[in-house]
């Protein structure tokens, strides 16, 4: 074999403009984008809730999500599933196992979020630390959790466990919808409605909104601020646990220590896009981001995925600096 021909840079257009593909794949991209965007939205809710109450961007939230992913994965393992093989179980048993894994993930993520708050943020609050210290702590906590997981589970993704291989159920305008996507979109919407109602209607939710609006007055009115903060983190963690289950069902290769990094940034983007501090904004932002990423890839090419997402963010913030729905958690009640 002759050695080392000179490496010729291949001439390839640096950007495509494939309107035909965009039109062709419009419905498929929309459906896939909505399903994947649901995961963004569920994670984004955690960013938004904590921001609303503490004005803190909890960068460690992506690791709370990863903890949920591992909790889901380890539940599958302890239920006797093995990586690689596709289990042949009755559908009822699969649903039961998935619900169980989801409950475990919600519990573990919720507890992890509360634990994180205890260990990382509460001591800072006690000492009246400046806001910047919280932000640095959040980034530090994110790296610390990531590295602990890496030391524990190694740097390779966990083996694939799939309980529910996607099967097309019906088509919309020629685009197939899989059983998995139906489950994810519907369940995410349900979770969102529950979270929204919880914040807007329940007593605890009123506490959350009160602290978000004016912590000092809320305290004077008898709201236990520390408890509200704890509940806020717990709700965010629980939603991240749900997201973790759906993510692992969609991407079975996702259980890896740094798997939350990019997703976390995207979810944070979704939260800002919709208006950070606003629950409905997080949902809207997540879904829009998921869909637009897909359109962008078809139109411009696969390497434009992230560019499209962030350019969209910049454009929206230029015209609506507070995000699409704007407002904050305190005033989010319609």
């Amino acid at each position: 074999m002759a050695h080392a021909a000179p490496l010729v840079v291949h001439a390839e257009p640096w950007i495509n403009f494939d309107v035909g593909l965009l039109a062709d794949r419009f419905w498929a991209n929309t459906i896939n984008g909505l399903a994947y965007g649901s995961v963004y939205a569920l994670i984004a809710l955690g960013y938004t809730l904590v921001y609303g109450v503490l004005q803190l961007i909890n960068f460690a939230h992506s690791e709370i999500f990863v903890i949920g992913v591992f909790a889901t994965y380890l539940t599958f393992i302890s239920l006797g599933f093995e990586p690689g093989a596709i289990p042949n179980l009755p559908i009822a048993a699969i649903i039961l196992d998935l619900i169980l894994a989801g409950l475990v993930a919600m519990t573990v993520s919720g507890l992890a979020a509360v634990g994180l708050e205890r260990v990382a943020y509460r001591p800072l609050r006690r000492r009246n630390a400046p806001r910047l210290a919280f932000l640095i702590t959040a980034i530090g906590a994110s790296f610390a959790i990531q590295q602990v997981i890496r030391i524990w589970r190694g740097s390779n993704p966990e083996g694939t466990i799939r309980l529910l291989p996607p099967q097309p159920v019906f088509t919309i305008f020629g685009a197939p919808i899989t059983n998995l996507q139906i489950v994810i979109i519907l369940a995410s919407l349900a979770m969102f409605v529950v979270a929204d109602q919880f914040v807007n209607r329940s007593r605890l939710g009123r506490g959350i909104r009160a602290v978000a609006q004016d912590p000092a007055t809320a305290t004077l009115m008898g709201v236990n601020r520390e408890r509200v903060i704890m509940i806020t983190f717990a709700v965010g963690g629980i939603l991240a646990g749900v997201a973790a289950l759906f993510y692992l069902m969609t991407i079975p290769q996702g259980a890896v220590y740094n798997g939350g990094f990019l997703l976390g940034i995207k979810a944070f983007t979704a939260a800002v896009l919709g208006g950070i501090g606003n629950l409905r904004g997080a949902l809207l932002g997540g879904l829009i981001l998921g869909v637009v990423e897909n359109y962008g890839q078809s139109l411009f090419g696969g390497d434009w995925r992230d560019v499209v997402a962030f350019v969209l963010l910049v454009l929206i913030l230029m015209f609506r600096p507070t995000g699409i729905l704007g407002e904050s958690l305190a005033r989010s009640r319609a």
Partner: peptide
């Protein structure tokens, strides 16, 4: 056909559309 993906990308539905076409 030439298609680009990103390091750490795990969701490929749009890419797969390009391949199918």
């Amino acid at each position: 056909c030439q298609i680009d993906v990103k390091t750490n990308q795990r969701e490929f539905s749009a890419i797969i559309g390009q391949v199918q076409q």
